[in-house]
Design a protein around this nucleic acid. Structure first.
Lengths: 209, 209
DNA sequence: TAGATTGTTAATCGATTAACAATC
DNA sequence: TAGATTGTTAATCGATTAACAATC
């Protein structure tokens, strides 16, 4: 499974495959053909077979794909079984929303700690985690027994870079960036995925008319 | 400006252009060449010229692009000057986070109302808006003097489709979907932009190793 | 005018789709 | 076996990059 060989276009479709296949699994569907799945997902059957074959031949001629098998293969490809450790930096409404409503575990991620700069928030409890002071982030990362895999950045834009750099310099392996600050332009060496609300909204206002 | 001619790949880059050009504008930069901008954004100069030329010749040979002009052209292309009306459905932590922290006005969007199903939330005030009962959404949309342009969906996944359909059937022109329910598969006829946290997180867990 | 840099055409690259032999 | 459907190669399509004449 040489990752370099798989294009980001394919990778970005994997979570969607997992979502659909998992739904089929939950519904008790046993097998599905690329044609049937294509119809549901709005892809071509060709693309589905092409995409899945980047990772292995999960199907069977004349039969299609076994839903349970494919589901577990996709889970394994996406490392959902790895149980990664994450930290949320920035416990404003967004950080709080994530901690309280988002099912991290279902994506194979466990949130180990929460940090904020506001002393009125520090020490309070959110979804079972006591919020720590952001100034202690570096010490925490260095002292933590397991490595922290994912840094989730929900701080104000103005401090996004500093927090990202602290994560990056202390062994965090990937960043999920919710600010509109563009981390890719600065010396951030780990993979970053961006959730840019503004970009999505502006793409929409363009497409309205 | 025939929109059909501009690919979605280009459109999705427009907000990023606007962000960079706006930053330059705020910093008082007067002009910029495609080469210099390319270096900052991590694009090729060729791509920038190609992209911008989908909308018009905003540059000048031997000079480059005037930042103020380009900024206002991009704002106009993205309809930031249109002042669209939006509604937020679902005032959990995420809806609340959006209403309290997100600068809609800066994207040319004005939130007109907020709706929720929880009667303990209905009637409370969030950032100057009194939360209404979701059951009244349809009546509200029909009675509202201005058309509502954008429906923002932050409800639980299980009711995402119903809310989207209500928006769609009552004149809302575009949807911003924060649930992991895939609205494109059902009879939703307006443009949809998705913010799928789970997909971003899973793309990241794939890319970690 | 000379230098810089665009707008635009042509060349390349990559991603998607079509086709079909392999095979369950 | 016959029918179905994959895995995979080849063809097409679209997007990105390179090149350069036009021109400020």
């Amino acid at each position: 499974m040489d990752k370099k060989a798989v294009s980001l276009a394919v990778v970005r479709r994997l979570p969607r495959y997992y979502r659909y296949i998992n739904d089929l699994y939950v519904d008790g569907v046993e097998r599905i053909s690329s044609t049937a799945l294509a119809e549901q997902m709005g892809f071509t059957a060709s693309q589905i077979r092409q995409d899945l074959n980047c990772f292995g031949g999960f199907g069977q001629q004349g039969y299609g794909y076994n839903v349970e098998t494919l589901r577990s293969e996709l889970a394994s490809i996406l490392n959902i079984d790895k149980n990664y450790c994450a930290i949320v930096a920035g416990i404003g409404n967004l950080g709080r929303a994530l901690l309280q409503n988002f099912n991290f575990i279902r994506s194979g991620v466990q949130v180990k700690a929460a940090f904020d700069a506001d002393l009125r928030v520090v020490g309070t409890e959110v979804n079972g985690l006591t919020v720590r002071y952001i100034g202690d982030l570096e010490d925490f990362l260095r002292a933590h027994p397991q490595p922290i895999d994912i840094g989730i950045i929900t701080v104000p834009k103005s401090v996004a870079y500093d927090v990202a750099k602290t994560f990056c310099d202390n062994g965090v392996r990937a960043l999920l960036n919710f600010t509109s600050y563009d981390l890719s332009r600065a010396g951030i060496t780990v993979p970053v995925e961006n959730v840019h609300f503004t970009d999505s909204l502006l793409t929409l206002t363009y497409r309205i008319e």
